[in-house]
Design a protein around this nucleic acid. Sequence first.
DNA 1: CGCTGTCGTTTACGCCGTAAACGGAAGGGC
DNA 2: GCCCTTCCGTTTACGGCGTAAACGACAGCG
Lengths: 268, 268
Amino acid sequence: MPTISDQTSEDVRDPDLVAVQEGPEAAGELTRPAGLDREKILQAAIDFIDEQGLAALTMRRLGSSLGVEAMALYRYVPGREDLLDGVVDRVVETLWDDRDGDDIQVVDHSGWQDYLVRLAHGMRRIALAHPAVFPLVASRPPAAPWVRPPLRSLRLVESFLGTLREGGFSDQAAVAAYRAYSSFLLGHLLLEVTQIGAQVSLLDQPEGDEQAQRETDMREYPNLARTESLLGQDKSAAEFEESLENLLDRLERVLHEARNSGGDVGDL
Amino acid sequence: MPTISDQTSEDVRDPDLVAVQEGPEAAGELTRPAGLDREKILQAAIDFIDEQGLAALTMRRLGSSLGVEAMALYRYVPGREDLLDGVVDRVVETLWDDRDGDDIQVVDHSGWQDYLVRLAHGMRRIALAHPAVFPLVASRPPAAPWVRPPLRSLRLVESFLGTLREGGFSDQAAVAAYRAYSSFLLGHLLLEVTQIGAQVSLLDQPEGDEQAQRETDMREYPNLARTESLLGQDKSAAEFEESLENLLDRLERVLHEARNSGGDVGDL
DNA sequence: CGCTGTCGTTTACGCCGTAAACGGAAGGGC
DNA sequence: GCCCTTCCGTTTACGGCGTAAACGACAGCG
């Protein structure tokens, strides 16, 4: 499907120009995706995963979603694996596009706590915006062993460490905080998007006799049966804030203890 | 490699019985993998992933690792996806085989704190024993939306909730603890096995001129450059204990506050 | 006009998951 | 002994995958 009918703005233009199929640079960059480039392909891949899921993404299908044969993609992308890496990079980079994103890169924050809160909210926004892409962000092998998902870029880790240093953390404490923080973020966000995916996939196959089967299942699990409605509730947002605050408290405690007792700045 | 040489106990047996290729039930279940069954296939898949990685696992290769054509597997396993589900189940079930595993299912513990510590150590043992399988444990869609990886079985969640109830938690607090605990476990363990994988994969391609390239990279990242050796250190075990203790402290605080102030047992 | 470089297409290959038909041995009733 | 069913691994086959390589078509430029 090459972008619905035959276009609107083009039909008005000079006939001979239209006849030669429209040069790629004419009419700005808001035309249809006729001319390929790497960014357009990556964005199309992100959209595709958001809509059809990661498993459905193949080079052939991605190509045809761009109105092009699969092999055309290989002029801009070395292969499927590199495409996925590019998708991850591009998604993570949207962190800087955020209203809060600007503040993250600016050196002058309202303190490291503010920075960590903004960063956490930014990553959560990304995860929720692309729940089907986030597992990729979480599990693709990082550039270096110490680049921990979901904080997947050197630039980001650099700003993280710099901010904590300015906040009074020693190098050791900053690194320890980086690790604790990334564990928290990854665990919470991955579970949150997994839950979204599971809820969606359960709607597909309602099954006929779930009632009888469930009761026999639940007979052996009284605690599950009793708390089922509680377990089903989604309080992700509140739990996220709670866990985040707890982590900040913990970091603050470490920081103050280190200040008061001089010596060992400790491993958090 | 069909379990070293040709066996010991079989060679002693009556020749004509041995000649007819050995019936599947004879000589116990410790014979070579001649007769297939679902458990043998799942174990072979786990071994295969541990050795060659998840991406290398195909039905054809798994078959030939068992000395059999790919299609033979389909008599015991409905398809590849179900095979992977089976792998996850089987790996998680080894939790009960542990020395501590026995204690986990026994009702009478030395308190819920002890239970949570044993459970955490048990899951960590599994993750480290099968680092290439663990991402599967982390990311496969769970049976129900509220079954949160890596605590992937109803039985496990049931015993978790039951233990906390016995420890004095309200249903709400127990469920909240379950969520906080699974987030912590998933985040920490997934990052720990990712790091293992990354270190291994970096050894494959040492590259010639990494020195010059790294320095140009690092010029823009002073905090990274300064803390590089710290970032490279692996203190996963200590951090795991630290985070776990912190989580237990937090839960304990919630529990006591709820006891003293009666009313709202809160969301942790 | 023809040369050259750019970019999408065509063709082809080997591997994948798996449906379906097949063959041959095991075991049980006559 | 025989045959017949049942079990279980193999063979064959199909469509889809990632991607290497050859192939036009067309734009810009001499």
